[in-house]
Design a protein around this nucleic acid. Structure first.
Length: 577
RNA sequence: GGGCGCGUAGCUCAGUGGUAGAGCAGCUGACUUUUAAUCAGCGGGUCGAUGGUUCGAUCCCAUCCGCGCUCACCA
């Protein structure tokens, strides 16, 4: 993400009326700064370090970054912007995540601030430090421009002290906002302050017995021992309950923009009211929709449904994932493997179209937002011999190619691509190489498992053997190996087998019968494990005569069936583990 | 119950205050032999319903119907 860009005045002008959501959001922010007179725009995204960064984290940061960039263009980059990635790492550990090692270690620290919980991986100062580091690695890997802030550090360094004292002063106002949102029994025990126990180090959820505004302390009682404590609300000796915490943070840091998921609508509202009660102005923002899994159910980390970022990136490009995040943030969208090919292809189409668009249209083009105003040039392929301008090779085309090649090997696929466009390579087209690899994995994971090989019966076996023998004549080089010639031989073999003779075919005569579709179906089912397949002559030409004969040999020996069974079995055990 | 979103071709979805679009599926044809792919062509929609604003509404507003998500314990 470029740090400074000189924006074309025409672009800035067009931005004022561009009606895509990042600009609409940014305009709210422009209005806000006009009102407050603030000289800087501060964006925040929040993060709970009891888990690892996930696809929702990516969505929030990338969307916020899009608004930020739109804001910079809108204001001609005259107002500095910052993005804070805030880790709520002083929160108490509530339960032991079950996907981690050293569970006993974690269990012994239940209730302690996450920065006081030992790192189950033994590498960092604490569990929170570990997860914070992972968060930063993650954000850095995508090149986001942000500043990391730790709640623990902010609390301890006194960065929140002034506002914490205001919360103490205006305790009643805060309670008045919070209480109606709570159930009767919770109302009895609720306190916006959570003191850290001076002896056990636990984050205490206890009623406050006394407040001393001048001293800046709260008085509370240990429910187990009955011992009374007086704790400063400042200096990291206490933290705030979630909603007041959020409000306090907005006020203390001066946050101007923060978006949140739809599930947090009520929380945003309450925190906003608290922020006002503290004399602040709640940030601008909007509520984005949550993602759904393949069945339309909400994605939850505990259920493990939906997709992880790594899963997406093993098939589609980072850009395609960004596009998914850009599209319709207010709609509940299915986030599943089968949406990837389309996102990839849409991205490629937008990228190609961008080249010929004017400023106004470019601002409405997603790729402009994904790449902070500087989308890369598309990677075009010019077909050999043609004088056509190059075209983008699409993911769906690559998937077809993979199926035809019957191989997920990138080198094999590149061989096919060179047939279309000589001279291209992973070096000249690195992003296409990503697509090639993704398509290969997609084949491996989604296409290949769907295959169902079957054994040939006697007639089929004889016909296939005959085909293999005929193909041998191509192997010796005595005949040119063209797709057409091979296709012709395939037909001839089929024609010689009574089962596959079709007298009703167009142009068929008793002397020269047509060939039934059953012949081809047998080939596909036995050799490729598919109900349908590519034009087989073309397939053999691409795949190789020698290789095809080997394929037939294996089919006749029953190896294709057994190998595929082994593949499925290994895959299933791999999954269970 | 509160909040939000969605409803456009068989399916998945674009889209705009001025005669409705794409991909896939379907159908027809071509590629001097039928499948895949490709190419060419075709058909197909009361734009959920009703009312309002407007010269004109699929689009804006209101109401309703249907579907879905979410919150109401914790973060």
């Amino acid at each position: 993400m470029p740090q400074s860009t000189r924006f074309d005045p025409a672009l800035v002008d067009a931005a004022q009326t561009a009606n895509v959501w990042p600009f609409e959001e940014a305009r709210k922010l422009v209005e806000r700064l006009k009102r407050t007179g603030k000289k800087e725009a501060l964006f925040e995204t929040g993060y709970g370090p009891s888990g690892l960064p996930h696809i929702g984290t990516f969505g929030e940061v990338s969307r916020t970054s899009m608004v930020r960039h739109a804001f910079r263009v809108l204001t001609g980059d005259t107002i500095p912007t910052r993005l804070i990635a805030f880790s709520d790492d002083m929160d108490g550990l509530r339960k032991v995540p079950d996907n981690l090692p050293n569970k006993e270690l974690l269990a012994a620290s239940l209730g302690k601030p996450l920065t006081q919980v030992p790192d189950p991986f033994g590498k960092f100062e604490s569990f929170a430090h570990h997860n914070n580091a992972r968060l930063r690695e993650f954000l850095d890997a995508f090149g986001f421009d942000y500043e990391f802030l730790s709640a623990t550090e902010c609390y301890k360094a006194g960065r929140f002290d002034k506002t914490l004292l205001t919360v103490l002063e205006r305790y009643d106002a805060v309670m008045e906002i919070m209480l109606p949102s709570l159930r009767a029994e919770r109302q009895q025990s609720y306190s916006p302050f959570l003191p850290v126990h001076p002896k056990t180090g636990l984050v205490m959820q206890v009623p406050i017995e006394e407040r001393k505004a001048e001293a800046g302390t709260i008085v509370w009682r240990d429910p187990d021992t009955g011992e009374r404590f007086e704790t400063p609300v400042t200096g990291g000796h206490a933290k705030l309950q979630w909603k007041p915490d959020w409000a306090m943070r907005w006020v203390a840091l001066g946050v101007d923009y923060e978006m949140a998921g739809k599930d947090l609508i009520d929380s945003v509202k309450l925190s906003g009211q608290i922020a006002k009660a503290l004399g602040g102005l709640p940030p601008e923002g909007f509520n984005y929709e949550l993602f759904l899994d393949e069945k339309g159910q909400k994605i939850s980390k505990s259920k493990g449904n939906g997709l992880t970022i790594d899963e997406w990136l093993s098939y589609g490009t980072p850009d395609s994932l960004s596009l998914f995040m850009y599209n319709k943030p207010r709609e509940a969208k299915r986030l599943f493997f089968d949406v990837i090919p389309r996102q990839v292809d849409d991205y490629l189409t937008f990228l190609e179209r961008y080249q010929t668009q004017d400023a106004k249209a470019r601002l409405m083009n997603p790729v402009w937002h994904l790449h902070a105003g500087e989308p890369p040039a598309p990677e075009l392929l010019a077909a050999s011999g043609g004088n056509q301008p190059g075209t983008t090779i699409s993911f769906s085309m690559l998937l077809n190619l993979v199926a035809v090649a019957n191989s997920e090997e990138p080198s094999v696929l590149w061989g096919f691509i060179r047939r279309y466009a000589p001279g291209v390579s992973p070096e000249t087209h690195p992003r296409l190489d990503l697509l090639v690899r993704g398509a290969g994995r997609y084949f491996q994971d989604f296409v290949k498992p769907q295959k169902t090989y079957r054994l040939p019966d006697e007639v089929e076996a004889a016909a296939l053997q005959k085909l293999a023998d005929v193909l041998a004549s191509f192997e010796t080089g005595e005949r040119p190996m063209t797709a057409e010639a091979i296709q012709e031989e395939i037909y001839n073999v089929g024609r010689s087998v009574p089962r596959y003779q079709d007298l009703k075919a167009k142009g068929a005569t008793p002397e020269r019968p047509g060939v039934s579709i059953e012949w081809f179906n047998a080939i596909y089912q036995v050799l490729l494990g598919e109900p349908r397949g590519p034009r087989f002559g073309s397939f053999v030409a691409l795949y190789g005569v020698k290789e095809t004969r080997a394929l037939i040999r294996k089919a006749l020996a029953g190896q294709l069936v057994s190998e595929h069974e082994a593949f499925l079995k290994e895959r299933d055990t791999g999954r269970a583990a």
